[in-house]
Design a protein around this nucleic acid. Structure first.
Lengths: 189, 189
DNA sequence: ATATAAACGGAACGATCGCTCCGATTATAT
DNA sequence: ATATAATCGGAGCGATCGTTCCGTTTATAT
């Protein structure tokens, strides 16, 4: 059933990898609205070359976001294994800092012009599962109140990323994080 | 020194008022990126008529934001006078709910394509003064921890509006508000 | 009622952007 | 070395949007 895709020509494979790398950096810096021509220019290829590998701009963005989220999952699982009680807080801070370093990811997570659950259902499920796991872990460790669920965590991340991107430098955010932390650690009403 | 501006013709005054009203609603619904032609269509005028009263789209947006922020200041001062300890929390919830009802204001406050302090320095100062007053009031009443300042409050508002707009329905946000509240009420570390 | 000038609407201009197309180039098999 | 086909770059198409322009309409003063 599966067609065997004949291997890419050497120059095509090189260009594809270069486009992915440059798109990764460019979407992070400029967000999903950056023109394809800008990515092409930075990669030193023509726009046609990008469209030969990715049929639409959205499909390129999707590939980048999927890769990025899988990196976060891996990193977070490692950290959470080391310190169960702190895993969720470290994850929240890490996601918040993405607001400063990766605008594309921040937009994707907020759902700005991009429906994560619709475009990448598998990745979204994996990511939601991760959050459920480290939240439950923190609640078992007693560092997070029991009446908080995964939807609350997703919502907080959207807020934290917006704060980091649109208002807060690193110093200011490190005064905000303890407030969020105290709120999450407080006993239920 | 001041030139006396001769009064507008009756139809011009009517159109100007109608454009303002429609722009108010349209920016709230669609955000600052809505095409001018859409506002013109809804107002039943030509694009030229809008540009006769407001030299650029940005100047129209600025007029709307200024008006909107002054309304919030007035409303908040009244509320804060009634209940000093709750004034800040009521203000935060009100601003958060703007995330759902007024996209234009949310964008302006986050600084998305619009620098509030640069475009409307007087309004921005008034608004910052308001926040300083009700924060100090709450801290005096003992409902907010002492190590929080106005910059933190501005940052929290950006985050809360993003949460409300991009993730949270009203029910979910009413589970998030108590977390923020608990974080702000907690004693300093 | 008429003259005057203010105001009107919407066509059109120039810039931007996603995407397609095609003549020129280049990797690869022989 | 040559033939073949994959790949390339970038000009160009069509759509969108801010803004301007101008022939027509309309309010107002007389």
């Amino acid at each position: 059933m599966t067609e065997k895709p004949r291997p890419l020509r050497a120059d095509a494979a090189r260009n594809r990898a270069r486009v992915l790398q440059v798109a990764y950096e460019t979407f992070a810096e400029e967000g999903a609205a950056v023109p394809i021509d800008e990515i092409a220019r930075r990669a030193g290829v023509g726009a046609g070359t990008i469209y030969r590998h990715f049929p639409t701009k959205e499909s390129l963005f999707r590939a980048i976001v999927a890769d990025r989220l899988r990196q976060v999952v891996e990193r977070t699982r490692e950290q959470a294994a080391v310190d169960p009680g702190e895993g969720l807080y470290a994850f929240l801070v890490h996601m918040a800092e993405q607001g400063a370093t990766d605008l594309g990811l921040t937009e994707a997570f907020a759902g700005i012009g991009f429906d994560l659950a619709e475009a990448l259902p598998d990745v979204e499920k994996e990511f939601t599962g991760l959050m459920a796991d480290i939240l439950a872990q923190a609640q078992r460790a007693g560092t997070v109140r029991s009446d908080v669920d995964v939807a609350d965590i997703k919502t907080l991340i959207v807020g934290l990323q917006a704060m980091r991107r649109f208002r807060g430098d690193s110093e200011l955010m490190h005064r905000v994080y303890p407030v969020i932390r105290a709120g999450l650690a407080a006993p239920p009403d």
